[in-house]
């Protein structure tokens, strides 16, 4: 069998496994807790005033259906999967009767574009700067950049986003700090609307980039400073190959491979960061939707978002994995 096909099949298998285990964790979390979510919801709903016993019985029945708690465990498990495979999570409780899938579909493009823009920007910038810093390791400006990148890297997304919010929202208010676009604008392809979307995205993208940059920078710097000591680099230098060419085609290209794998491995964490950042800036994506769903006690929406997140991140990882052989000929030839 050709190498690429084997690679493709193992990656597809891994993708299926990720989705399978992820959904199972979601099932275990929702079903193996000692607390009965139905009784809890009823207790919350009947906290104030008296409700007739018939109404409570009716409520219990409909909630049990909704939570998928009818029948024995095997039956519940099958029902759980069938709902997910069809992609039908039922109507949202807080925005009744809008289906959960519609709400998620509306929020998903915002999250995906925020993630793609910030991840690509961060990854390219971090690797470029890191590569330069590894190659020209005496440069003062690049050393300073390294220290700055290191200082921001360990701080969690929430804190960085929050600091940016304070600085650009309260201390020096020059950028919009809330929403995905200006409130009073219709969504259309006009310069004004696109400009408004871009200006609203600056702070979320900046906070994701500030945290993410350091990791790529340090990783690439370490990789490049290892590659530079290889014999073929010395040979190329002695042979009079232009330095730009050495850096781009000899050093960076070889060091880039682990960074692509690294990107696939850290997508989950980047996604976590995007969710939080959205919430801080009130960005109309999945993260804001998730937090408001929890506050509204909307079970089907929370479960729907969790499932969609798991599947979406696994698809993104699969895409990176499938692109990998294009960059690394060794995988193709194997």
């Amino acid at each position: 069998m050709p190498g690429y096909l084997v690679y493709l099949l193992t990656r597809l298998g891994q993708f299926a496994l990720v989705v399978f285990i992820g959904i199972n964790i979601a099932f275990i979390v929702t079903h193996a807790t000692p607390i009965d979510p139905v009784e809890q919801s009823i207790a919350a709903a009947t906290q104030f005033g008296s409700t007739s016993p018939e109404a409570i019985a009716l409520m219990r029945q409909s909630l049990k259906e909704l939570y998928g708690l009818e029948g024995d465990l095997a039956h519940q498990y099958a029902a759980f999967w069938s709902r997910i495979l069809v992609g039908n999570f039922g109507p949202s409780l807080s925005a009744f009767p809008t289906p959960v899938s519609v709400l998620i579909g509306r929020a998903l493009p915002w999250t995906v574009s925020l993630l793609v823009v910030s991840t690509v920007l961060t990854w390219v910038m971090g690797n470029l700067l890191g590569g330069l810093a590894g190659y020209f390791h005496r440069s003062r400006a690049l050393r300073l950049a390294g220290i700055l990148a290191m200082a921001f890297h360990p701080i969690p997304y929430y804190i960085v986003a929050f600091l940016l919010l304070i600085v650009f929202g309260h201390v020096w208010p020059i950028l919009p700090i809330s929403g995905g676009s200006s409130m009073n604008m219709t969504q259309e392809w006009s310069w004004a609307f696109v400009g408004s979307v871009v200006s609203h995205a600056i702070l979320p993208v900046a906070s994701l980039a500030l945290v993410g940059l350091g990791g790529w920078f340090m990783g690439m710097r370490a990789l490049v400073s290892n590659v530079v000591t290889e014999d073929y680099v010395t040979y190329a230098e002695l042979g009079g190959v232009a330095r730009r060419r050495i850096l781009a085609a000899y050093v960076m290209r070889n060091a880039l491979m682990p960074q692509v794998t690294g990107l696939a491995m850290s997508l989950g964490a980047i996604f976590n960061g995007a969710i939080i950042t959205e919430q801080v800036f009130g960005y109309p994506g999945i993260g804001t939707l998730l937090v408001s769903a929890v506050h509204a006690g909307d079970y089907s929406l929370v479960l729907g978002i969790t499932t969609v997140s798991i599947v979406a991140v696994s698809i993104a990882v699969l895409l990176i994995d499938l692109l990998y052989p294009l960059l690394d000929p060794r995988v193709r030839a194997r």
Binding site: Q14, L17, G268, A269, L290, T306
Partner: peptide, 26 residues
């Protein structure tokens, strides 16, 4: 390692939020 890679990839935050949602006051 297959299981291991799965745990690396899965976005944990939504799962933790789901966990809180089920546990609530507990």
């Amino acid at each position: 390692m297959s299981i291991n890679d799965t745990f690396i990839v899965i976005p944990l935050f939504p799962i933790l939020v789901l966990f809180y949602f089920v546990m609530r006051d507990h």
